[in-house]
Simulated scan of single mutants.
Amino acid sequence: MNAVRQTTIGDSITLSGVGVHSGKDARLSIAPAHPDTGIVFYRSDSSQSVRACRSAVRGGDLATVLRDESGPAVSTVEHLLACFAGLGIDNAHVELDGPEVPILDGSAEGFVSAVDEVGIVETDSARRYLKVLKPVRIETATGFGELSPYDYGCRLEVEIDFDHAAIGRQRYAATLSPDVFRKELARARTFGFVSDVERLWQAGYALGASPDNTICLTEDGIVNTTGLRYADEFVRHKALDAVGDLAISGLPLMGRFRSYRGGHKLNFAVIEALLSDRSAYEIVEARLPSRRSLRDVSGAITVAVPAYAPEL
């Protein structure tokens, strides 16, 4: 585990770009937040907010969408949530001027770089973890997703299988940490097939997609002249998406996540299955040592505390 205290960012951040689905300019600001705030999205064009949590998910396989019962939707939050979870950021206020988080270059690298400029700040409050106690599994016609116990943090084992020469069958496995996220996942970009573009446009998606923010695949190769950032960039991006989707649980996970031919919808279904079974998880809280800096904390000792309600 990476920290025993809750964290937030050191100062405010502002980023802008295009929304990959809306095609419209998008601007967001990220500000520090108090302990136990979680990640809260605020729409400045409507003066309403929504917390990133299980009950707010309104999305399918093309993007992660958050919306409460009365407020407007906030779309394409997965890469930003992956940045927060991957770097171990527990609390932040995110203000958007419209419905969609900017896609930047299609990865989480821009968010990570912005956070690294202002730093991550430790608070005085203990971090809580969502510990998986028994396996939960969701199967589809073509794949599966599951969570099982793992006492050493969050373990990712993601496998994809595409009938395409540039992808094929790829597998990525690692125990998540800020260092692993920065080096192995943050730069992996989203990808899509040129043959699907017209259908997506008609459905109102991918209006802002381009080789600047998407790996574009033809029948026999890729359009992007810069090539791939990793030989297995496709599965690494699926793992990045999984990190963001699992963050919807509301707390850092202590468990092993496996998926085969998964996506946003399957990832959410696994979290729903876990939180719907009170015997499948518990909340553990880090025991606070004497006050130290983040880089001096080599591990965390946890003790069980009473389990929260399924809505974390």
Rank of each mutant, 00 (worst) to 15 (best):
A307T: 14
R155A: 14
E95K: 07
D161H: 08
I301R: 05
N267A: 05
T7E: 08
L240W: 02
A309V: 13
A174D: 05
T14R: 15
L80R: 05
G119S: 04
R43P: 01
S279D: 14
S22C: 08
Y172K: 01
D179V: 12
S49A: 15
Q170P: 05
S249P: 00
F181W: 10
S210A: 12
G221D: 15
T214P: 01
K183I: 12
A3N: 12
V4D: 14
A73S: 13
R256K: 15
H164C: 04
A166Q: 07
L240P: 01
D36I: 05
N224M: 06
R199T: 12
S298L: 10
P289N: 01
A231R: 13
V57T: 04
R236V: 08
V136N: 02
G59C: 04
V50D: 09
V180P: 03
V180K: 00
G221M: 05
S210R: 14
P35N: 12
L274S: 03
T76A: 08
V40Y: 07
L28F: 06
D163T: 11
L66M: 11
G98S: 12
A188D: 04
T142F: 10
D220V: 14
E100R: 01
D97M: 01
V194S: 10
S298F: 06
S44N: 09
R43I: 07
F84Y: 14
V118Y: 06
E69D: 04
I138A: 04
S44K: 11
A3E: 10
R171G: 06
P102A: 10
Y230T: 03
L28E: 02
A56E: 00
E95W: 03
E233W: 03
K131D: 06
K183H: 08
G60S: 02
G227N: 02
P149I: 13
T214E: 11
V50P: 03
L200M: 12
R295Y: 00
R236N: 06
F257Y: 15
I271V: 15
R236P: 04
T225Q: 15
V284W: 08
